[in-house]
Write a protein that binds this DNA or RNA. Structure first.
Length: 291
DNA sequence: TTCCAGGGGTAGA
DNA sequence: TCTACCCATGGA
C-alpha cells in the first residue's frame, strides 16, 4: 500500500531527517542512498509493519508493507515529521537576522521525532550522560528485547509499547536493556503508564502552558532540566534551551571562563521564544556527533 | 586504573 | 538556588 502525504511548502525531508540523531535509533533505519527512512511500526493489532518513507516534491511517499491502517499511518507520519507544526513565525524571525537567515533558506526547523512521547522520553533518557554509540546500543537492546517483531523477519522489531516493558520485572528489564542507572527510570515510566498513573500522550495538548509542561516533564523519573528541554523541543516548545556539556563549553569559550547553567541560559536569552531551536540547529551545524 | 559521555537525584548549606 | 557527591556503563 502506498500513501502520499502532502507536506507544507516550508518542509524539507532531508533537513528534518538529519536534524538530529533520531534517524539512527531503532526502529528507525536511515539509508543514505537512496535516501529512504525505514521504520518498523506496530498498529495496536499485535502485528508490526515496515514503513518506507521517501521525500519528493511537496509530499512524502509512504509504502506500508504489512498490516497498517491508512489513517493511523498518516497520523503517525505527521507526528514524526512535525508536518502540522507552524514554523512561519520562526522563519520570519530568522530572516531578519544575518546569522540565522540560512535556516529558512535551508528549510530547517522541523526535527524528526517518534510517534509517541513515551518513545521520545525513553530515547532522551538513553542519551543522558553517555556517548552516542552507547545510546544506540541501549535503544537497540530495548527494541530487540521487547518490541513486536516484523512478520517473517523477527530480527526487526517495533519500539515496545509501555506494557511490553512493564510486563517484565525491573530485574529482567535491566538484564536485557542494560541501561545502567537509567533502567529503573524507564521501567517506572512504563509501569506508571500501564497502571494508569501517567498519560504521557495527553501532554501533547497545546492548551498546556510551556511552564506547566516543563514541570510535568521534570516530574518524570530520569528526566532533568536537559532531558525535559529536549522533549519540549520535540513538542514544538522552544522557550528553554537544552543546556548540555557542549553549550557550557561554547558559552564558556565566548566568555573566556567556565560558566554555570544559569549563565548558559542567560546567553541564549536574546533569542526569546525561539532560543532552543536556534541553539539546536547551531549545535548540529557546528558539532554533530557521528550518527 | 582513571577518565569521560548530548546528566539526574539527593542532601545539605 | 546552588554545590558536592554518587549513580551504571564500557571504550579510550
Amino acid at each position: 500500500m502506498r500513501i502520499s502525504i502532502d507536506t507544507p511548502d516550508d518542509f524539507d525531508f532531508l533537513e528534518c531527517v538529519n536534524a538530529h540523531g533520531w534517524r539512527s535509533l531503532l526502529p528507525f533505519c536511515w539509508d543514505t542512498e537512496p535516501k529512504v527512512l525505514e521504520r518498523i511500526e506496530e498498529f495496536g493489532d499485535g502485528n508490526a509493519a515496515l514503513l518506507t518513507i521517501r521525500g519528493s516534491n511537496g509530499k512524502l511517499d509512504v509504502d506500508a508493507h504489512g498490516s497498517a491502517p491508512e489513517q493511523d499511518v498518516v497520523r503517525r507520519v505527521k507526528i514524526m515529521f512535525q508536518l502540522d507544526l507552524d514554523i512561519a513565525r520562526f522563519y520570519t524571525y530568522c530572516a531578519k537576522q544575518p546569522a540565522l537567515c540560512h535556516i529558512p533558506q535551508l528549510r530547517q526547523g522541523r526535527i524528526l521525532r517518534s510517534p509517541s512521547l513515551f518513545e521520545d522520553a525513553v530515547k532522551v533518557i538513553a542519551t543522558t550522560n553517555t556517548t552516542w554509540s552507547r545510546t544506540k546500543g541501549m535503544v537497540a537492546r530495548i527494541v530487540e528485547s521487547f518490541g513486536t517483531p516484523l512478520p517473517g523477519d523477527a530480527a526487526r522489531r517495533a519500539f515496545p509499547r509501555p506494557d511490553q516493558i512493564a510486563s517484565v520485572t525491573l530485574e529482567e528489564f535491566s538484564e536485557k536493556a542494560r541501561l545502567g542507572y537509567r533502567n529503573a527510570s524507564v521501567h517506572r515510566i512504563a509501569t506508571d503508564i500501564v497502571e494508569g498513573r501517567l498519560d504521557l500522550e495527553s501532554w501533547r495538548d497545546s492548551e498546556i502552558t510551556s511552564q506547566d509542561l516543563y514541570k510535568r516533564l521534570l516530574s518524570l523519573p530520569g528526566i532533568g532540566p536537559y532531558a525535559a528541554s529536549c522533549l519540549m523541543i520535540y513538542l514544538g516548545r522552544y522557550e528553554r534551551v537544552n543546556v548540555d556539556s557542549w553549550a557550557r563549553m561554547m558559552v564558556g569559550k565566548e566568555l573566556g571562563r567556565s560558566v554555570t547553567d544559569k549563565e548558559a541560559h542567560a546567553f541564549f536569552e536574546p533569542y526569546g521564544e525561539w532560543k532552543a531551536l536556534v541553539y539546536h540547529f547551531y549545535r548540529w551545524r557546528e558539532s554533530a556527533p557521528e550518527f
